[in-house]
Design a protein around this nucleic acid. Structure first.
Lengths: 344, 344
DNA sequence: GAACGTGTCTGAATCGATCCAGATCTGAGA
DNA sequence: TCTCAGATCTGGATCGATTCAGACACGTTC
């Protein structure tokens, strides 16, 4: 038995295809009584509704935004930062009856094909690392897309904060308190070497580190005197890396982490080492995820949900003149994980 | 400037549309040298590759499976059970170059439209509660779909375990150890009233409770003597509900939870109440999530990843004769959260 | 030399809907 | 009575690709 389409119904009811189409998509274009008759026969014949693929082809609009997430399938929802962002995005998408296609892959290479084949009207690249294959695939796809968070690429619309400036403020604040022995914990995959001098157009991690360095240098210190350690972006990673830095003698009086998650791990490491925060050790994070508040973590707050909204707006009705970088405001949130350094 | 399509390229190169199409989709159908020339001009003109919507329409295949998840956007990835399931699903989908469309919504009503409009070849309904609007939408969509976990619906392919039998085994085990004062913690939204007598065709929670009851009755006890408490499906929910049951006098010697997450909360509640597990109190879970092993929780193990594979196979090459219910094996995992009841 | 197979390419039909310009009818207003 | 606006409906063109049957050239084989 052939598939039931608009044509099947049209013949059954004795009207044109167009009219049946209108019955579904433009109810005001036909007599209500006829519409009911059409819908009734559609139901009787088991019509599943206008075929989405055909509709998309003809309309030239899919009503879907693809959100390209990092390779970790769990990333999107375990990270509260991502959740808040997606909420903002969904918020502005809904009124345009646009839905979100969350795209993740077991490994980076699979990303290319998915980006090429996704039926969407545009993409959001969410916090991809520099050189991620999806970025090139996005460029080739010739659909509008916006990069959120990082990296900053020439000529591609970007929404994020001024990471370098924010990191500078955070570090300056610690230095003004009197801290001189600093430790820095940053996320990155194994082998990652941040290039602080290309920080203008590169990833967020490098930008944040560069901001730290700006402050350090401004206070007349040598960046080389700061203990820097890479770790994975996780609670456990922060714990492990902080433990290492805290084992040094003399140990740092303040630890700066590039994300809250890492800072939370550092807090636990401090506790395990028998140090009291902030009396013995100051710790700072970055992003202000919900747990940061509970933990009393000093950090930088990003307008996460607002960032999602901004990205959505940029994609749903693109501005006449492209605005390559939209920097949102950030805020230094001082809580009680930081204080004066302990007496020497 | 008009969009670049196969036709544009065909005219530019001076071949037919078909040949250009073959250059992309069936490389063995044309001269390699010509193919290179076509791909080169395609690149030069900025062709983004065959339009996915058009291709889907013509091919009649989207290469996508929709996975319908519950209303909680975070559910998919915070629940390790779901993660394992999705891994199995992705595993069998990949060889057929099929990708997964994860579908979640802020509220249940939005589900209908998404199911109606998704461009997919089939759906997986993952652990939806009975009466979820998506279930009706799935039926109307007339595409193949499989229900995973729950609920069991007449005539719809199902993959899961025999929850009632598994729960029966778990409870029998406790009763054989000598426990007589039991407490039961089950998940469910506020107002949820499990119907134990419709347990054959209904949700997993009711089936599990019915299994508990089967065992209780078999040991000559009255089901009414068992303290049953509903809670949310979370660590905190289990903690709160267990605290209430443990405040009773005499207090239960064993708590059965309908999921591991709840059982983990119950373990914490026991600790908070100064009870030692299993000496003072036995606790059991259900599902065997990774944390259950770390916590030493006695539970029922489901073949999670295998379940995902089974669902995928069912959708990717549907069997001739529909097999309405595919029950996977389960296993009682005894760890050290259970033991003989304390002396009275 | 006829028949045949293979490699390469083409044109028309098709997937299922929506868009657009126009046909037809009805009732109100001049 | 005639005109006109609005409501209702229609047929054909179109979205961008794939499919299918067949055309053509070129060797091989008997």
């Amino acid at each position: 038995m052939a598939r039931v389409t608009l044509k099947t119904i049209a013949e059954e009811v004795g009207v044109s295809r167009t009219t049946v189409s209108n019955a579904f998509s433009r109810p005001d274009q036909l007599n209500p009584e006829l519409r009911r008759r059409i819908l009734d026969t559609a139901k009787r014949l088991g019509y599943a509704g206008p075929d989405p693929a055909a509709r998309t082809l003809r309309r030239g609009r899919a009503g879907v935004l693809g959100v390209v997430l990092t390779e970790e399938i769990s990333y999107a929802f375990t990270d509260p930062y991502a959740v808040a962002f997606l909420r903002g995005l969904a918020e502005v998408a809904e009124p345009s009856s646009t839905s979100l296609l969350l795209m993740t892959w077991p490994d980076d290479t699979a990303a290319e094909a998915s980006v090429r084949e996704a039926i969407v009207d545009g993409f959001v690249a969410f916090c991809l690392h520099e050189g991620h294959p999806a970025l090139e695939a996005l460029r080739l796809r010739r659909l509008p897309y916006v990069i959120a968070g990082e990296p900053r690429l020439e000529g591609v619309p970007f929404v994020g904060i001024d990471d370098r400036e924010a990191a500078y403020q955070l570090c300056s604040y610690l230095l003004r308190l009197g801290h001189r022995r600093l430790g820095v914990l940053h996320d990155g995959r194994p082998g990652f070497e941040p290039d602080l001098d290309a920080a203008g157009t590169s990833g967020a991690v490098a930008a944040r580190l560069a901001g730290f360095r700006d402050a350090v240098r401004e206070f007349g210190l040598d960046w080389a005197s700061v203990a820097v350690r890479r770790t994975t972006h996780s609670h456990d990673g922060g714990h492990e890396a902080a433990s290492v830095l805290l084992a040094a003698d003399p140990r740092p009086t303040a630890l700066l982490a590039t994300t809250d998650l890492i800072a939370l791990g550092a807090l636990r490491a401090a506790r395990d080492a028998g140090l009291s925060v902030p009396a013995d050790l100051s710790v700072t994070g970055f992003d202000d995820i919900p747990q940061a508040e509970a933990a009393g973590l000093t950090t930088i707050r990003q307008p996460k949900t607002e960032k999602g909204r901004a990205v959505g707006r940029l994609l749903l009705d693109p501005p006449e003149t492209p605005s390559p970088a939209l920097l949102m405001g950030h805020e230094l949130i001082v809580r009680n994980s930081t204080s004066l350094p302990p007496d020497p």
